[in-house]
Simulated scan of single mutants.
Amino acid sequence: MSSAWADGTGGAEVSDVIVVGGGVSGLTTALVLAERGHRVRVWSREPAAATTSAVAGALWWPYRIEPEGLVGDWSLRSLRWHEELSGRPEETGVRLVAGVHHGERLAALGTWAAQLTDLVEVGEGLRARLPLIDMPVHLGWLERRLVAAGGAVQRRTVISFDEAAAEAGTVVNCTGLGARELVPDGGVRPVRGQLVLVENPGIEEWFTEADPVSDATTYFFPQPGRLVLGGTAEADDWSTVPDPGTAEEIVARCARVRPEIARARVIGHRVGLRPARDKGVRIEAELLPGGGRLVHNYGHGGAGVTVALGCAEATADLVG
């Protein structure tokens, strides 16, 4: 693992940690902890390939995520890491790809945008070269690196954090939407995203455009072996079943930007529930009744991969 982000334990006492949740936040947090010398297990109800993270597009960009004062640093930390990983795209799933955020302007972005050397304002919006992550590949890489660092991933459904606390002194909550019931935190809610996968008709750049007056978004991401079309951002919708009408609308919107998409063969449909939280990301530690510690890392909304490493390091700092 690169020394650019594995900073060691500094002589700290090794402890047992169980990370609950096996998506991109859980695996990245577990990997950081393992690299810092902790004995780490990930408890996940489902394989990484079946998590919400695996459905994501996934373009690096601080999208629908708060708190604004912290997101910039978390995102930039993850950006530098992804830039490093892009040198091994077949292994890590990370590539640097050019594209346009249509209708966006530099003045509307936070101070973090000044750190993006490839971000340029053009007539149609913001043009940039950004990390585009093939999530199934990336999740597999994270899991392999975690195991290589001495960690373990176990299939386990958790009903209470007390179950994990009975086996480890520190429990890390990376449960995404599951935090609504497990914490419990009623401010956690789904933001439904539907995607259409088509054969790529030769498109090499990504494109995004948000509709300010609806929950519809228009984007396409060229991934290996497919073009990912989107999408939707439907708050409080728990349905994971693809809607045929919505799929047709997604294809039509994308085809208005690139007409060749209308003739592309559909090869699949995906739905993911982004784990949003009313108060934004929660990274916080608390004591459990039995004396153990529970460290929270959830509420990433539609930007989990964008802040994955930054939030993982902030969480690991609380673990100690």
Rank of each mutant, 00 (worst) to 15 (best):
A4R: 13
A6N: 13
G10I: 03
A12H: 05
S15T: 15
S25R: 02
L27G: 00
A30Q: 06
E35L: 15
R36L: 03
V40G: 01
W43K: 12
E46C: 14
T51I: 12
T52K: 08
A54K: 08
G57S: 11
P62R: 03
R64E: 14
E66V: 06
E68T: 15
L70K: 09
G72D: 13
R77M: 08
R80F: 10
W81F: 08
W81M: 07
L85Y: 03
E91K: 02
G99A: 02
G103M: 04
R105D: 04
T111I: 09
W112C: 07
T117Y: 12
V120I: 14
V122F: 06
L126R: 06
L132E: 08
V137H: 02
G140P: 04
L142S: 00
L142Y: 00
A149S: 09
A149N: 05
R155C: 01
T157R: 15
I159Q: 13
F161V: 05
A164T: 00
T170V: 15
T170N: 05
A179C: 08
V183N: 13
V188R: 04
R192Q: 07
N200F: 10
G202M: 03
G202I: 01
W206M: 08
T208R: 04
V213N: 13
V213L: 13
T217R: 13
T218D: 06
F220H: 15
F221C: 14
P224H: 01
G230H: 00
D237M: 02
D237V: 13
V241L: 11
I250E: 13
A262V: 03
G268N: 11
H269M: 06
R270N: 12
G272L: 08
L273D: 02
R274K: 12
D278T: 15
G280I: 03
V281M: 05
R282H: 05
I283F: 04
E284K: 10
E284V: 10
L288C: 12
G290R: 15
R293F: 07
L294V: 09
G302N: 10
V305F: 14
V305K: 08
V305M: 14
V305P: 05
A308R: 04
C311P: 10
G320R: 09
